[in-house]
């Protein structure tokens, strides 16, 4: 499923004044493609990610995932759409502390009332090399393991689009690289369209394309520029 963003604009009201965070943004990501979005803090990366996840509304434009315009869906529809089509990985993992790895991964399947929940979750965790950690709680796991559980949770419902917010930001370089290579493997294997927000140049370089977000506008960084 491809992702196409057209003329996307987002403003926040700050008292009387309006602050434009995203201005007339257009780009597209092909199915299975992994794209990095880089940019300084405050450039609008998290706003873009929120919009792509259908967690916020835009002032103008379209976000077309496959052939659905997210911005045209109502609250309920977007929730349902996200639950079955979009996976999200956070910098701080955001695992539920009182649930085991397995339970954390089962959660999205439970919420969307799917079948074979347990076996699918176990399969994904195995795929991510965590078969020995199924009954551990997040507090008993290392950072890398937590993030792998988080990735497992994001892809267990077989999303068409994966959004990752600084996925290696909380990890040391080595672990980060390891976890990211696992992420890339899985994403490629399942042909999941991926948008990855990151500070890390090395991580960005591993993606197929890099988009540079600056003052609400996006420009493609050609590989030759480096």
């Amino acid at each position: 499923m491809s992702l196409r963003v057209e003329h996307l604009s987002k403003e926040y009201a700050q008292g009387e004044a309006k602050v434009a965070v995203l201005r007339d943004l257009s780009f597209s990501v092909a199915k299975g493609e992994i794209v990095a979005v880089v940019g300084e803090s405050g450039s609008g990366k998290s706003t873009l990610l929120s919009l792509l996840a259908g967690l916020d509304s835009a002032n103008e434009g379209q976000i077309i995932v496959g052939d659905t315009d997210l911005l045209q869906l109502n609250e309920k529809q977007v929730t349902a759409f996200r639950a079955s089509n979009i996976g999200i990985v956070f910098q701080q993992y955001h695992l539920v502390d009182h649930l085991t790895s397995l339970e954390n991964v089962m959660l999205p399947l439970e919420i969307t009332k799917q079948s074979n929940i347990r076996s699918r979750a176990v399969a994904v965790l195995e795929e991510l090399g965590l078969s020995h950690r199924l009954t551990h709680f997040p507090t008993q796991l290392s950072g890398g393991e937590c993030q792998r559980v988080a990735i497992a949770r994001a892809i267990v419902s077989e999303p068409k689009l994966l959004l990752a917010d600084e996925p290696s930001g909380n990890l040391d370089t080595q672990t980060g690289e390891k976890v990211m290579s696992v992420l890339f493997d899985v994403v490629r294997k399942h042909q999941i369209t991926t948008v990855l927000v990151t500070h890390s140049e090395s991580l960005a370089r591993k993606c197929q394309r890099e988009l540079f977000l600056d003052q609400g506008q996006l420009r493609e960084i050609s590989r030759r520029e480096r």
Binding site: L55, R82, I88, H94, P108, I111
Partner: peptide, 15 residues
Amino acid sequence: RELNLLKVLGAKLEE
């Protein structure tokens, strides 16, 4: 945070 996460994962208000 936990609730927001559940929401992101697709939980409805009633749920």
